[in-house]
């Protein structure tokens, strides 16, 4: 185990003088204590509401982004937010699963597990979309194996070996079941 020291200096020398440290004790650290604030306890984030904040969802909303695509929204809120992202609206089988997920609240496991399932289905849809556009996914490049080849060749071989082992085991299992 390493020594309980910082640069071989007694790390709490200041405490032996009694009381709290002073900037002199930490002169080697630029800015030490610059933000000491006795009022910083309790600190951010803390409840800090004005009277008008007890009114509920009644603030003057920003202008609303036009909704000209399907936007799923949490059932824990009454509406779509004033702005929203337009990346990848739900589509295909994964979209169906996402629509199902949004029938449940954020407190529900089924909401999140369905979304994760949709994500995995979406990966297969992504490969099909690539192939439809005449692009065969370059898995080697997409996984950054070039960097692995350059910086950690052993790691790359390990990954490839594990992948080959898992694939072989899966194929063998399927072949055995088919035979039975």
């Amino acid at each position: 185990m390493e020594e309980n020291t910082r640069d071989n200096v007694d790390i709490k020398a200041w405490s032996k003088k009694g009381g709290a440290p002073t900037p002199k004790d930490f002169a080697h650290i630029k800015g030490w204590g610059a933000d000491i604030d006795p009022e910083n306890d309790p600190t951010y984030p803390m409840r800090n509401r004005e009277k008008e904040d007890h009114g509920g969802y009644d603030w003057e909303r920003p202008p609303l982004q036009p909704v000209n695509m399907e936007v799923l929204h949490s059932l824990e809120r009454p509406n779509i937010t004033a702005v929203f992202g337009t990346a990848m609206p739900p589509h295909g089988l994964s979209g169906q699963i996402r629509r199902f997920a949004f029938r449940y609240s954020e407190a529900s496991y089924i909401h999140w597990l369905s979304l994760i399932m949709a994500d995995r289905v979406n990966v297969v849809e992504g490969v099909i979309d690539d192939l439809k556009r005449g692009q065969v996914p370059n898995i080697y490049a997409e996984k950054g194996y070039k960097a692995l080849w350059k910086h950690d060749r052993t790691g790359l071989f390990k990954k490839l070996a594990v992948g080959a082992l898992v694939t072989t085991a899966a194929v063998a299992l399927i072949a055995r079941k088919a035979k039975d």
Partner: peptide, 19 residues
């Protein structure tokens, strides 16, 4: 109300998918 309290990471008008 959240932005007004300095809770800019908790804005209620920027994410429809999760409150």
């Amino acid at each position: 109300t959240f932005c007004k309290q300095g809770l800019f990471a908790n804005c209620h008008e920027a994410n429809p998918e999760a409150t």
